[in-house]
């Protein structure tokens, strides 16, 4: 069974927000909300500063706290690609999943259910990349099966230095950032 994840090259990302716009368009994300966003991290002390620009979204964690806390099973791990998804017909809008996510990746859709990145599951089922990956002008985003050693994402992780966000939170995120 595939275990989909994302690898994002922070040395190539310029923070152009094409991924954000593509996601909003593809998934009809309501105005004022976003499923993905750009974070800029500046570290160090002048003049030795470093900047990392990251395209961030739900990490589709291997140990998703949003799934374990959900009282109705609305938040679940889909068999297809082990994606973490929300069934809006089951969601009661209790917001426990929002509170359980260390990445604050979820929000409440104006219609009342919890919403977040799906890795564009509807596109992936058709063999396409998620919209954010497909439009990236610097080709810094890569999507694929992390468990398949022949996949591009697995090869990149094997060959490049990388990190994930808040590994200390213990959720085993599946988005990795190349540095």
């Amino acid at each position: 069974m595939a275990r989909f994840g994302m690898v994002i090259d922070t040395l190539r990302c310029v923070g152009c927000m094409d991924c954000v716009v593509a996601c909003k368009t593809e998934n009809e994300v309501p105005e004022g909300f976003c499923r993905d966003w750009i974070t800029t991290e500046v570290r160090g002390k002048f003049p030795t500063l470093t900047t990392e620009i990251r395209s961030e979204r739900c990490n589709h964690c291997d140990r998703p706290p949003c799934v374990t806390c959900c009282p109705t099973g609305a938040s679940h791990v889909e068999d297809f690609g082990r994606l973490v998804l929300v069934d809006r017909e089951l969601c009661i809008g209790c917001k426990a999943c929002l509170a359980s996510c260390p990445y604050d990746a979820r929000f409440i859709h104006p219609e009342g259910y919890a919403d977040k990145c799906t890795f564009c599951v509807h596109r992936v089922r058709e063999g396409k990349d998620p919209a954010c990956v497909a439009v990236c002008p610097t080709r810094c985003m890569h999507f694929g099966d992390l468990d398949d050693p022949r996949s591009e994402v697995a090869k990149l992780l094997a060959s490049r230095r990388h990190h994930a966000l808040l590994p200390e939170a213990g959720t085993r995120p599946r988005i990795h950032f190349l540095t």
């Binding site: 976003c34 966003w37 974070t39 800029t40 991290e41 961030e56 604050d104 929000f107 409440i108």
Partner: peptide, 18 residues
């Protein structure tokens, strides 16, 4: 120094969870 800026501004989530 560590400075984080984000373009995310989701209601009830940013700038802090409420």
């Amino acid at each position: 120094m560590l400075e984080l800026t984000t373009t995310r501004a989701n209601p009830m989530v940013d700038p802090s969870l409420q």
